[in-house]
């Protein structure tokens, strides 16, 4: 490979979005920040597409397309013992939302498997009977966009169909109890939940 070719590849690597995150995290978006623009594949399961209010013909979608006011995102990994231990409590949290008539259409939830293939996400889903939509992120593309957080990590974002989504919750670690977590989310998201 000659010097010119090497220079061209060097420039490409340096100016690519990947290079800007490699080995140097900018940290996760915090409360008050704009949530990064991430693209997710359309869920295969019809009930998940319906839950998120996504059109059947979309190939991929962005968080702003989800029909909700609040979106809770769990960054997890099938390989993470903390996520494994916490999974039943996370399910309880999800069920407490969907069983609450006032909340079920206003708060939705998804999970993103950092570094997990589709197969690995499926193993996690079936092992822990996870009912909310889970998405693979096999090459850490989304994980890098979200500041290379450890797992489990929870984001709460206010979804805005007409502009960027805004982060109101951004924390590493467990829920500290499903009920307490829901109260905390309701309190933090109050301005976005009110009519």
């Amino acid at each position: 490979m000659n010097t010119v070719s090497r220079l061209a590849i060097l420039m490409l690597l340096f100016f690519s979005p990947w290079a800007s995150f490699a080995g140097d995290s900018n940290g996760p978006p915090k409360s008050g920040d704009v949530f990064p623009d991430i693209s997710l594949p359309l869920p295969e399961a019809a009930e998940h597409r319906a839950y998120l209010g996504l059109p059947e013909d979309a190939g991929s979608f962005k968080t702003e397309c989800i029909k909700t006011r609040i979106l809770i995102i769990e960054i997890f990994s099938m390989y993470c013992p903390h996520c494994q231990r916490e999974a039943p409590e996370v399910n309880t949290f999800y069920e407490s939302i969907v069983n609450n008539e006032a909340l079920r259409d206003r708060i939705k939830m998804i999970g993103i498997g950092a570094g997990n293939s589709e197969y690995e996400v499926e193993v996690y889903r079936t092992t822990y009977n996870v009912a909310f939509p889970l998405f693979p992120d096999p090459d850490y593309k989304i994980h890098k966009r979200l500041g290379e957080v450890r797992t489990p990590y929870f984001f709460g974002i206010a979804v805005n169909a007409r502009g960027p989504d805004q982060v109101f919750y951004s924390e590493l670690g467990g829920l500290d109890g499903a009920e307490r977590f829901l109260e905390h989310i309701r309190e933090s998201a109050k301005p976005f939940l009110e009519d």
């Binding site: 090497r6 590849i9 060097l10 690597l13 340096f14 290079a19 490699a22 080995g23 960054i75 990994s77 390989y79 993470c80 013992p81 903390h82 996520c83 231990r85 950092a114 570094g115 850490y140 994980h143 890098k144 290379e148 957080v149 450890r150 797992t151 489990p152 990590y153 590493l172 670690g173």
Partner: peptide, 18 residues
Amino acid sequence: FLILLAAAAGWGGAHSGA
């Protein structure tokens, strides 16, 4: 070029909070 390629080959993962 070599430094960037080495970084590209490097670990990029999420370790558990556990």
